[in-house]
Design a protein around this nucleic acid. Structure first.
Length: 745
DNA sequence: CGGTAGAATATTTTT
DNA sequence: TATTCTACCG
């Protein structure tokens, strides 16, 4: 895999083309760079920043906002080598969220937070909302927690506070029509809960920054002076709050450079609005506009196919993307009878490609939804092709990891009720729902946070059974001891934490496959705290939590073995691969069911498809299945409407199956076949897993237990088990599916 | 209170 | 199918 930043070797010469050069050199005043896919955008950005520094601009006066922290890191490295200047380290470069979190920690007191505030992720937010709805006995169908959360998020991204909502008739009308009359109350309560817990959710990082700047003229002028030069990548995917903040900061010096491609805007579900980009020229006068239209990445066929597709979108900036690379092969389209066949056939295509001498990492498989990864995984595994799935559940989102992290968060911020509730009975120590609710009610009554309640005399006012009281006291004591350690290094905190809570002991006592896996993950977390605490600076608890809350750190980034990449199209943004496979081109899946109703939404899905195609350097393979197994039933599907939008001149169609087509269905509602009777026969689709090359007598090294020797290999059921004797820990049975180890001999 | 079995329910995409 | 929720029993 390559990211755009290190793809510059694709640019034929070492020099920039005239348009790129102009975009790099024009550093004063507002600039808009429209950068088509593969147009050397990242190179232009890095060169531009390097040019700023070489022209004498102080690194500390540059604000560069990227879409991911990973992109920021890579760009920083390139800028450092371009400028040969150590100072380039001090550029303010990162995502909106991480940069603003940094500012907010600095200025927290001004807006009524303390600087150790917790950052809640979506799971935390959802739990809070679910609790509010439950506490108030609201109808779960009308007040669907997920929906409520996304609506709250929508409000926040559009800077609509509860007060604003209240005077916003159309919004109120909408909710009234849907009988969600209590939406405002929930919104208020949710905000209150976060604030009381000294916590911010992702959206709060934006709106609180906006508020901070809005209400404090001295602070905004301070940052206007700091951020004299502003550059924002992927501007097409900014939301209103982000756009406004940039306007707040940029209005003084107006050295604002936005980079983006309206055709690649794919985050409207998160509040992103292309109009931010389209209206840029209206807000600032004399905007210099540069269009990077030459695609250095893909073959002409791929670029032409993508162009013919995106031409169906009405809402877009006029531009002509072209390629001078070789013509290349046509895009290939395959029809399969079902998802399983799709997975198998695509896998064997990749296998053949690898046999031709290509690297696995030249291949990427892209899909619309995370759940589609499973079928292709099965296919690849059968062929023994290494792959890596990006995204899905990240390491830090795993339950057991979050549980341990909740202890750390609570140590840092005692008012973090969400974390406290999460761990008061983890591992189970006899504190059930009844007890927790009694405690919560008392805290509510006293208008205190839970920890404040527990540590004060109020605790004794709660009517608890003796047993419950003892258990809660036990928890309080654990936490008091841990709180003492707040300034120790994290590894020491972790050791005490494990010792006092017995998390590891408990898991070891009950070594089910799940628990072994959990144990390994916690082991990995402990390892990472060890590494973290060995850092020279920024090695405190707050730094650790900060990085984990906002960095999409995958922790297993270090996998070096050659592998095929599997990811959603959203995650492929900014990446490129020689050979790209796009699965599941079916109406209802891609474009997704929900987005098929509105033209605006279909345009977004089309942009998503455009992004997918333009990831490819040499070849694109598309596929769809005429039936798909989903939710335990087989559904007939129809090929995606996007397929025929690609000009036939650039695409080649293959049919693998000859089943008669059932015609005449309503496009919006593909017929469903009731499969309940068939289900009883149940295909034996057990997930088998065997690790290759294992032998009795081999010595291995395990990430938790260390060195050991294989004593026995058990392939009897679908899950391969090995018995290993560890010099440190004695004999253990491991499931090779989960165990993390390497063969030594 | 904790564990579990069986029922109900859910699928976009993510900082 | 995979995950979450609910009801019930020890």
């Amino acid at each position: 895999m390559q990211t755009e930043s290190n793809k510059s070797n694709n640019i034929q010469t070492n020099t920039l083309n005239p348009e790129q050069l102009a975009a790099v050199r024009n550093i004063a005043g507002p600039v808009m760079i429209i950068a088509g896919p593969g147009s050397g955008k990242t190179r232009v950005i890095t060169e531009r920043i390097a040019h700023l520094i070489n022209s004498g601009v102080d690194s500390q006066n540059i604000l560069a906002l990227t879409f991911t922290n990973k992109a920021a890191k890579e760009m920083k490295m390139r800028i450092k080598s371009l400028t040969n200047n150590e100072d380039s380290e001090s550029i303010w470069m990162g995502t909106f969220h991480s940069i603003f979190a940094r500012i907010l920690r600095q200025e927290a007191a001004v807006i009524g937070y303390s600087n150790n505030f917790t950052i809640y992720d979506n799971e935390d937010s959802n739990k809070i909302i679910r609790r509010i709805i439950k506490d108030w006995n609201l109808d779960k169908d009308i007040y669907n927690p997920k929906f409520i959360f996304s609506r709250i998020s929508f409000m926040k991204n559009n800077l609509i506070s509860p007060e604003d909502y209240n005077i916003h008739d159309t919004l109120k009308e909408q909710d009234k029509r849907n009988k969600r009359v209590d939406f405002l109350k929930i919104y208020q309560k949710y905000c209150q809960t976060c604030r009381d817990s000294n916590a911010m959710d992702f959206d709060d990082l934006l709106i609180n920054t906006h508020k901070l700047f809005q209400e404090n003229s001295s602070i905004i002028s301070y940052y206007q002076e700091i951020f004299k030069y502003i550059l924002i990548d992927e501007y097409q995917d900014t939301n209103k709050a982000q756009d406004k903040i940039i306007k707040q900061i940029g209005t003084k010096y107006k050295n604002v450079c936005i980079v983006g491609d309206d055709s690649q805007s794919i985050y409207s579900f998160r509040g992103a609005n292309i109009n931010n980009m389209l209206n840029f020229k209206k807000f600032y006068k004399n905007v210099k506009e540069f269009k990077l239209e030459q695609n250095y990445r893909s073959t002409q066929n791929i670029v032409n196919a993508a162009n013919s597709l995106i031409a169906y979108n009405k809402h877009k900036i006029d531009k002509t993307i072209f390629s001078k690379n070789e013509q290349g092969n046509k895009i290939r389209l395959f029809e399969y009878s079902n998802g399983r066949e799709e997975g198998a056939k695509i896998s064997s295509m990749i296998e053949k490609s690898i046999l031709k001498g290509r690297k696995k990492s030249d291949h990427a498989i892209l899909y619309r939804t995370n759940s589609q990864s499973k079928i292709i995984e099965d296919g690849l595994r059968k062929k023994g092709i290494h792959y890596r799935i990006f995204g899905g559940l990240s390491f830090y989102q795993r339950k057991e990891v979050k549980d341990v992290m909740a202890f750390l968060k609570l140590i840092l911020n005692h008012d973090d009720d969400e974390s406290l509730i999460r761990i008061i009975n983890y591992p189970t120590r006899g504190i059930g729902n009844t007890t927790i609710n009694k405690i919560r009610n008392k805290a509510e009554e006293k208008n205190k946070t839970i920890w404040q309640t527990l540590k004060s005399d109020d605790f004794h006012e709660i009517e608890l059974t003796n047993g419950a009281k003892k258990n809660v006291s036990f928890f309080i004591n654990i936490m008091k001891d841990l709180f003492q350690k707040i300034n120790n290094n994290i590894f020491e905190i972790m050791e005490l934490l494990m010792d006092r809570t017995g998390i590891i002991r408990r898991l070891k006592d009950d070594p089910t496959a799940d628990n072994i896996n959990r144990l390994e993950n916690i082991g990995e977390l402990i390892n990472s705290t060890k590494l973290f605490s060995m850092r020279k600076n920024n090695n405190h608890l707050i730094d650790f939590i900060n990085e984990i809350s906002l960095d999409e750190n995958k922790l297993n980034e270090s996998i070096t073995e050659d592998h095929v990449s599997l990811m959603t199209i959203h995650q492929s943004k900014g990446l490129e691969f020689s050979h790209v496979y796009i699965l599941g081109l079916e109406n209802g899946l891609f474009p997704s069911q929900r987005n098929m109703r509105e033209r605006k939404m279909i345009e977004e899905e089309r942009r998503l498809f455009y992004v997918a195609i333009t990831r490819a350097i040499n070849s694109v393979v598309l596929s769809y299945a005429i039936s798909r197994f989903q939710f335990g039933t087989i559904n007939k599907t129809e090929k995606s409407l996007f397929i025929d939008e690609i000009n036939y001149f650039f695409i080649e169609k293959f049919k693998q199956t000859h089943e008669p087509k059932i015609g005449g269905h309503n496009l919006m509602n593909p017929p469903k076949i009731d499969n309940r009777k068939l289900k009883k026969i149940k295909l034996n689709s057990q997930n088998t897993f065997f690790r290759k090359g294992l032998e009795v007598g081999q010595s291995i090294i395990h990430n938790v237990f260390g060195k050991g020797e294989i004593r026995k290999i058990d392939n009897s059921d679908g899950n391969q088990k090995i018995t290993v004797f560890f010099s440190a820990g004695g004999e253990k049975i491991l499931l090779t599916k989960f165990a993390k180890f390497e063969i030594l001999t």
